[in-house]
Design a protein around this nucleic acid. Structure first.
Length: 684
DNA sequence: TTTATTAAAGTTTTT
DNA sequence: CTTTAATAAA
């Protein structure tokens, strides 16, 4: 076996931990199985690790990092790209357990967060101001809504065709898909929406206007973060060279879900002969709608003929019965690497259960009742149970029933902490302080003033723009003075003035921004507390959210850092990040299958397994590839379970809009071997 | 002309 | 539940 030997960089040693703690040697051989060991100790160069569900993918990746560190690779020279922030954090924590205190300086995070870091470091070269704003999905959507309205393009097309012009989310979807797949917009529009050349023309014009608006506002949407980084590299090869030199070893998690743009980024950073280890499972590729292309992983060996390929096929998670079911479930898919997952565990006490329920309510009743039984009679903690579904609204009945039965639960969805109206309102003040050209933030703020709606807001914005233009990117000496010269409707006058005084407090004597805590306190005391009280009846719970948000801000020294982290955190991770206690609570997890990726529970309920729900209608209509992806999603759902798996569906759906009450069981259930399941008949 | 209020309808998946 | 469309009011 070859030894990996890398010289430490001069620059790296400067802030390396002082003669790091004597690393108690890790016995790699003993702690890994043969396949894992081979991957972990792979020689430098390209490596593809195909790791089946539950086979210790994360373990392999963390040990690989530890292996590199143990072989004198400096942490500064490692880049670890993950799919979620949570995965990045967990991975780093686990490496830190193996080699305490030796991970300092290691870059790890999502593609977006890494790009953010790079863009902030070279903002002016990238044509940005350092305080650039990141638009989340909602900001971007409302910006596009504005563009559609202001440009009058929608009206124009509607008059010509007599059909309704699609709304912002649809347009955004087309643009984003084209960007992420690198397909010409023309093709995407034709395939996904309409062959009408006038329509294409309209979309192209909207795209251009939207882009201009973003640039004027010194802001980037999620897609821009990746493409602008690539542009930066293309325009400034010396910047790229700097990072190529820094990242001697690149590791990529969930490679099956990378899209062509992300793939380009990896290739750019890795250079011609870079050391890239990608880890993934083609059977778990479930993000094609976001441009992910699992052919990335399938064609890896062709694109890199030198690449070592490792397979890890022992599953440590599930019972053989569950694994057998999963293996059978994925079989009909034509496009996949054939591999057979072997179970490490002994036979199960309880076979996977298949049950048809009369209605969605009964399905919910079943879930709640069974969960209580398992908890009270078998002592399985609620944290070890989950309900998984295709779409969030599938969980409504279950939520109701669990509430009634007093089963504690947390939903990893809808209620995204940082996306609630009051948190977004509150952070708009902060965003504006950092980026005076942030139209979205400005809009939110002035609309809080009495008597100001969309119309007046854009008028005030025009005035604001003409004033701030003179400032360049500097802050005004006195906000109140500056804002006093902008005319607002009489009703809003008083609050506008108060806002000016509040914003005066953002700046210290030297003319620079105060700390996040100080600014947030000013906003809260100066304007937001009063507004919240007058506007919302559930003031108390919202106030608590804002308080929690302020606590989140305490750990940042600069508002810039805080805001960029804020925009990139999302969903359940965010809630967890803000309040650890909430996630530690003893409660059942309700999650979409997408968000359940990478997680596991002892008991898993998969609900709504009917044709048109799962697989869903759109997939059925699009056929072929669409169904294959749904089947991969089904595979992901099954492989989340360790001990017990319940596959459920309601026979009828009284609320169905289509008028079709009777539901067809999911086609995915048909391919499952009956002898590997218990069919429960439900009595009432 | 613009804002506030009320009624209605429609929901994939997310950085 | 959330977003949007229609209507009333300022």
């Amino acid at each position: 076996m070859s030894r990996l030997y890398t010289l430490r960089k001069q620059a790296a040693s400067a802030d390396a931990p002082p003669a790091a703690a004597p690393a108690q040697a890790i016995d790699f051989r003993a702690e890994l199985n043969d396949q894992q060991y081979a991957a972990v100790t792979s020689r430098p160069g390209q490596a593809l690790v195909l790791a089946g569900a539950g086979s210790g993918k994360t373990r392999t990746l963390t040990y690989r990092v530890a292996w590199l560190l143990a072989n004198a690779v400096s942490p500064q020279n490692i880049l670890l790209l993950t799919f979620t922030n949570k995965a990045a954090r967990e991975m780093l924590e686990r490496v830190d357990q193996l080699l305490p205190g030796q991970t300092g300086g290691l870059w790890s995070g999502t593609f977006h967060s890494i790009c953010n870091r790079i863009l902030r470091n070279h903002a002016s070269l990238a044509g940005l101001n350092r305080g650039f704003t990141i638009l989340d999905a909602e900001d971007a959507k409302s910006l596009m809504t504005k563009v559609i309205k202001d440009s009058g393009i929608a009206k124009e097309v509607e008059n010509r065709t007599g059909e309704k012009f699609p709304r912002a989310p649809v347009i955004m979807g087309l643009l984003s898909y084209a960007t992420n797949t690198k397909k010409p917009l023309e093709d995407v529009v034709r395939e996904q929406f309409s062959p009408d050349p006038d329509f294409l023309d309209a979309v192209e014009r909207l795209a251009a206007l939207y882009d201009r608006k973003k640039r004027a506002a010194n802001s980037l949407d999620f897609d821009d973060m990746l493409t602008r980084t690539l542009e930066l590299f293309a325009d400034h090869p010396q910047v790229l060279a700097e990072y190529q030199f820094q990242f001697q070893f690149i590791l990529v998690d969930e490679y099956q879900d990378t899209n062509p743009v992300q793939s380009d980024l990896i290739n750019a950073l890795a250079g011609q002969h870079g050391n890239v280890m990608v880890v993934g499972d083609d059977a778990q590729s479930i993000y094609s709608w976001r441009g992910a292309d699992f052919r990335n992983i399938i064609s890896f060996p062709e694109r890199f003929p030198q690449a070592q390929v490792y397979k890890i096929e022992t599953n440590y998670r599930s019972t053989p019965e569950i694994l057998h079911l999963a293996n059978e479930a994925i079989k009909p898919n034509e496009k996949q690497f054939r591999k057979t997952l072997r179970a490490d565990r002994g036979p199960a006490r309880q076979k996977p259960v298949l049950a048809a329920l009369y209605s969605p309510q009964e399905q919910a009743l079943f879930v709640a009742q069974r969960m209580r039984e398992l908890n009270e009679e078998e002592g399985i903690p609620y944290t070890e149970m989950a309900v998984l579904y295709r779409a969030h609204f599938h969980s409504m009945d279950v939520q109701l029933q669990l509430t009634q039965d007093g089963v504690p639960f947390m939903v990893t969805s809808g209620l995204k902490f940082f996306e609630t109206a009051h948190i977004k309102d509150f952070s708009a003040f902060l965003k504006l302080a950092v980026n005076l050209r942030d139209e979205a933030a400005f809009d939110r703020i002035v609309r809080m003033l009495p008597g100001v709606g969309a119309g007046t807001a854009s008028k005030i914005w025009a005035l604001w723009l003409s004033r701030t233009a003179a400032l360049g990117d500097a802050l005004p000496k006195s906000f109140s003075d500056f804002m006093g010269r902008i005319k607002v409707p009489a009703r809003a006058e008083k609050d506008w003035q108060q806002l000016g005084w509040t914003m005066d407090e953002f700046v210290d004597e030297t003319g620079s921004l105060r700390s996040p805590v100080a600014i947030m306190t000013s906003v809260w005391e100066g304007v937001y507390d009063a507004w919240l009280k007058s506007e919302h009846e559930n003031y108390e719970s919202r106030r608590q959210d804002v308080e929690q948000f302020m606590r989140f801000g305490e750990r940042f020294e600069s508002l810039h850092d805080m805001l960029s982290e804020l925009s990139l955190l999302s969903g359940p991770e965010a809630a967890e990040d803000v309040s650890r206690d909430r996630s530690n609570a003893e409660s059942v997890c309700l999650s979409s299958i997408h968000q359940a990726k990478g997680l596991e529970w002892r008991v898993v309920f998969v609900i709504w397994l009917t044709d048109s729900m799962f697989p869903n209608m759109r997939a059925i209509e699009s056929g072929g590839e669409g169904i294959e992806e749904e089947r991969r999603l089904f595979y992901v759902a099954l492989t989340r379970a360790r001990d017990e798996l319940y596959l459920l569906y309601p026979r009828m759906w009284p609320k169905s809009y289509t008028g079709e009450m009777w539901q067809t069981p999911s086609r995915f259930l048909e391919t499952l071997p009956r002898e590997s399941m218990d069919e429960w008949r439900i009595g009432r």
